[in-house]
Design a binder for these strands. Structure first.
Lengths: 235, 235
DNA sequence: CGATTGCTTGATACCTCTCAACCCAGGTGG
DNA sequence: CCACCTGGGTTGAGAGGTATCAAGCAATCG
């Protein structure tokens, strides 16, 4: 099992063995309407504790995963420890499917989560024979690409205010009314996803609250009071 | 032919009808070792003038392209005209293959260039039957994704100096000795790719020249004098 | 030639980062 | 029970990097 590879190059606190009962994130519904076709997991669901590593950049990419519950982040590091989170993955998302022999990203559990493991080679065999598998994996890759491009626009051309607003709208989508963002991640995760620092994220949230665009009933619960104004910030 | 859709939302100068003889970019060799399998272009190569649009974001994505010569940029725009270039495409690259019904990016010619058009629907049919096509298209998608993730790291976590250094190293790869970056694009294109302004790009290049890391024999020709130092900037 | 385009450089403003202090909640142990 | 510690978050002061605004230069084009 690809747990406990090389430790991440700094920044992250040591993995807690006694896991604090953090607000478990209520995941998107994995409706099961798009099963893996002829593809079967190679084992039962694996549980990861908060901040535990699923795999590290450069490790042999023989396994990929489907998130069952919780949230997983995929990220890259620079030598000096700077981190860029590429994406957060929720229930139903695939991660770890790679073009080359090694993982191009590191994957870590944002909160306690469970994932199903798949063997990459069996997929590659099925790609040509099983239409359902082919379609799903391909569509996954294309949607990841589209999301990555949106993310580049955000990172390269949006201000801190716009970045945070976009982030909140994204996560509020998972709530019934689309107006409550329930966050599984810390401010540091938010910052490293948005290309900011935690202080700027915190200040920006405070400013949005002062301007009555949002409410902060709890640090991980953010209510969108003025969705229109927030959307305006998204151009 | 999908030329002359909606004009880009500002920023770009009007398309020149009488094309100035700009330094044509010497493309990567399209070695032909990975032909399109059973896939055939739907027509002869199409020529685009500098700054001409191949397709616009949102247009029906019925055609995709393979670059034969020249350089194409794919980019996204915000309402106010801010632009983020997602990628530059050189000979051999595919672009315009999309997961949804519409293009998610705008594509424009960086310099005079030629591309081969393919019909998307015929690929989708071949995806399940033709292994060569399937492999190539899928590999294209995965490599695009990997590149987009590298780009996110650059946009989110690198300084202007690091961004420019990375850019120069990238483009110098196409020269015989990997030490001469011959650019097909303007400083504005560089800036919009790197998430900077033209002034910052220009100042950064000047600084690199002052520090003797590069030489600027011409504005579009940049010689890397100290590759090691430049690579150090890439973490 | 004058006009335009692409590029460079300077002065200044401003946004975000850095460094620091502080708060709060939760857990731990005396 | 309370003191203490830790981790996550907020806020402030100041610095710094990049953007903005403006001027000027060189090459090209009409």
């Amino acid at each position: 099992m690809s747990v406990q590879f090389a430790p991440p190059p700094g920044r992250l606190p040591p993995i807690r063995t006694a896991l604090a009962g953090r607000a478990p994130w209520v995941p998107a519904i994995d409706d099961g309407t798009s099963p893996q076709g002829g593809l079967r997991p190679i084992g039962p669901a694996i549980r990861f504790a908060q901040d535990q590593e699923l795999y590290g950049e450069g490790d042999a990419a023989e396994t990929f995963f489907k998130v069952v519950s919780g949230v997983v982040r995929t990220c890259k590091f620079l030598n000096d420890g700077r981190r860029q989170i590429e994406a957060f993955h929720v229930a139903g998302d695939l991660l770890g499917f790679e073009p080359g022999p090694g993982y191009s990203l590191t994957a870590e559990a944002v909160c306690e989560c469970t994932v199903l493991p798949y063997r990459r080679r069996s997929v590659e065999a099925l790609l040509m024979t099983d239409e359902a598998v082919s379609r799903q994996v391909f569509s996954h890759a294309m949607r990841s690409l589209t999301r990555a491009q949106e993310h580049s626009l955000l990172l390269g051309r949006r201000s801190a205010l716009e970045k945070v607003a976009a982030f909140l709208i994204d996560w509020a989508q998972y709530s019934p009314d689309g107006m409550l963002a329930t966050l599984a991640m810390t401010r540091l995760d938010m910052a490293d996803y948005l290309g900011l620092t935690i202080e700027t994220v915190s200040r920006t949230l405070s400013q949005l609250e002062r301007d009555a665009l949002i409410e902060l009933p709890a640090t991980r619960q953010i209510r969108l009071k003025d969705l229109a104004a927030l959307q305006d910030l998204n151009s």
